[in-house]
Amino acid sequence: MIKQVPDPVLELHNLTVVYESKPALWNVDYTIPENHLIGVVGPNGSGKSTMLKALMGLVKPSSGYAHVYGKEIDEVRQRIAYVPQRNSVDWDFPVNVFDAVLMGRYKANNLFRRVSKADKEIAMEAIKKVQLEPFVKRQISQLSGGQQQRVFIARALAQEADMYLLDEPFAGVDAATENSIMSLLKEMNANGKTILVVHHDLQSVKDYFDWLLLMNTRLIASGPTEEVFTEDMLQKTYGGKLNILSRVVEIIEKQGHPIREK
């Protein structure tokens, strides 16, 4: 069940991504309306993170395209904040919490611009919102997993974007942190932000999200949570792979065959 909407803020059109000759996303095609709190759910290795990276233009699609706010990503980057997976960086890097959050204020269009006083105030506001003030001067490796995750979220907040894409923000995070992050996201959503979260825990899906993407390399479903979050759909998402598709994937991988002509 894939529900298409007019005037989407997020649109993937027939998007296919291949990693080292193995398809990670296959013909994913969806449209999502504005101001939703969107969950992306699927088993491990089902292309959820890849889909986020494709949205941000971090991986090149083999075919198809991604549009955000109806435009190429490069035209609207300022309006979108990306929160990578926590384990994607080396936390031993010599910066403290404040410096790390301040990176959210760096501007891509002026590399030589130094951060201003206003930037620092905005960063401090973001740190307060995620309740990290007591740790402002702390080196980031001396934080717990939940605190590190909040550093990433504060950095995204400091960007003052309209849309937030979060890759597994609740992985390795304690329950209290998960709750406080979630209520922050709900508050932002209430203030008109569109938020997309890659998520693992099926139990909380209904409470957290009002729009759902179910994925397993291909898109299984996209639509309002109450319509999509059904036994049948979950069975399709988690219940084994599509037999023929996975056999084709295997052949492509082994032979190094290109997945698209050109």
Binding site: L58, D74, R77, F93, Y106, F112
Partner: peptide, 23 residues
């Protein structure tokens, strides 16, 4: 010295730097 900030960001978190549109 001139590229101190972007260098710092790219070395610390390449994906985020890419997402922000840094070259």
């Amino acid at each position: 010295f001139l590229f101190y900030q972007p260098f710092k960001l790219v070395v610390f978190d390449k994906d985020y730097a890419l997402a922000k549109g840094l070259p």
